[in-house]
């Protein structure tokens, strides 16, 4: 039976009626129109549906909408500010880290959490941080470079 819940997404509150068997992913995409979160495998293997929930990345295909109630959720749509794109988004654009773009949302969100925890990651650290996001286009090379470049830029920005 449907139940009305409140989801806190990108610092906005959404009241939605959801079925118990409805995933957070489907709710974001088909009910709230937040289609930046992608559906690639539906069983937690590809990472395209990655969102940030209470500060950590999760596969939103493996979270029930009802489980997400009361938690702070960030999707790719929540990364931009009035000033424009997040430094990671800018770095992905400038460094050529985006090809088909289907893994990009999840990849950027994983990188964001990685940099939150470790602003000066090594190459190995970056690879570990994005290891749950499969990409078939880039071989990850320019993605790693973009994350490194964003980390460098953000560090300078703070100084």
């Amino acid at each position: 039976m449907k139940k009305i819940i409140t989801l806190d997404i990108n610092h906005e509150h959404y009241e939605v009626a959801v079925e118990p068997n409805q995933t957070l992913l489907d709710t974001l995409r088909y009910q709230l129109g937040l289609t930046g979160t992608k559906k690639g495998c539906e069983v937690g293997d590809c990472g395209a549906c990655t969102v940030i929930m209470d500060g950590v990345t999760v596969n939103s295909c493996l979270v029930l909408a009802m489980q997400a109630e009361g938690r702070q959720i960030t999707t790719i749509e929540g990364l931009e500010t009035k000033e424009g794109m997040h430094p990671l988004q800018t770095a992905f654009v400038e460094k050529g880290a985006i090809q088909c773009g289907f893994c990009t949302s999840g990849m950027i969100l994983s990188a964001r959490v990685l940099l939150d925890k470790n602003p000066e990651p090594t190459e190995e650290g970056i690879r570990r941080g994005i290891a749950g996001n499969l990409c078939r286009c880039t071989g990850y090379q320019k993605i790693v470079e973009a994350v490194q470049s964003a980390a460098d830029g953000m560090k300078e920005g703070h100084q």
């Binding site: 800018t90 654009v93 773009g101 949302s105």
Partner: peptide, 11 residues
């Protein structure tokens, strides 16, 4: 930069 990259970077 690719013409489609900003749209893809922002979802």
């Amino acid at each position: 930069p690719r013409v489609d990259a900003p749209a893809k970077a922002t979802g």
